[in-house]
Amino acid sequence: MILLALLIVLDQLVGIVMHKLYFSSTSGSEYETTYAFTKADADLIVTGSSKARRNYNTPLIADSLKLSCYNAGHDGQSLLFSYAMTKMLLSHHQPKIIVVELFPEELYYKEVHYDRLNILLPYYSDYNEIREVANWRGARNEDTTSIFYKLFPFNIEKIKLLSQSYRYNSMWLDLIKGLFKKQKTESGYLPLQKTISEIDKQKYIEEFELTKNRERERHIDPNKVKSLIGIIESCKQKNVKIVVVMSPVLKKYSDDPVYHLIDSIAMSYNIPFFDFTGDNRFNNLEYFADNHLNQIGSTYFSTIFANKLKSFLALNP
């Protein structure tokens, strides 16, 4: 009993300290997430994974469209995060347009995409908007076969979230580092500098094929489909324009069934779907750092994308 009482007190205390540290950070990933969730007020917001963050030169797009732009892409995240992000964003701000960046294989189930949703947990008690997505961590579909799921056939994430410390799991080091590091981007855009070689490209593709073949995670994730539809419907409700985009990749995989699903969802909601994955203009290694564009590539891509978006906005004012 004493141990339990002490544990609760200590857990609360640690939770308070971590909360303070987290929400008072003025740089780094935590700050940028909080900014995107609660303060972003640009006309155009880009959401998505590292592909969004690295490929969309938002200052250039802003200049071209004469709109303020913010890149809310987050490294390692997926459509699940974009859904939480959109819900948070629309709760405090009505942008003119939201760009949803997708990877061609985005709708496949990936365990790691749920693991990485831990970045939502610090917002769990204060923001209702992210709770649905955060709770998916404990109700991910793949887990139904695991012995742990069968031992605890309820949403174990909700139990873990009773702990205040757990909400900051795997963050304390980053928070301490954030006190000393001043990595901050005004526009959210963070370009990559290196350039991929032909050998690295082949290695990357071979490795991708190998992992694809040994992955057991090759089924469509209903939560991701729900997220895509959720983003579209939330934007429609708030009268916010939305475009779904696939920026260039090293190798096109458009024969994949999930690609066609994305296409059909966009079509059924009458949403523009700009696919650059097979665009020959990007058939040049100078534009790639890895499967992401580098600074040269992202600048080139953003110019093309901004023009395309400008035409779209001219036709759909």
């Binding site: 141990l3 002490l6 971590m18 365990e111 693991d115 410390s165 799991n169 795997s170 304390w172």
Partner: peptide, 16 residues
């Protein structure tokens, strides 16, 4: 022991 549990909560890997 409370601190050990808190450290596990803060640093442990609980996913998958």
């Amino acid at each position: 022991y409370s601190s050990v549990i808190i450290y596990i909560l803060l640093t442990g890997v609980f996913d998958a």
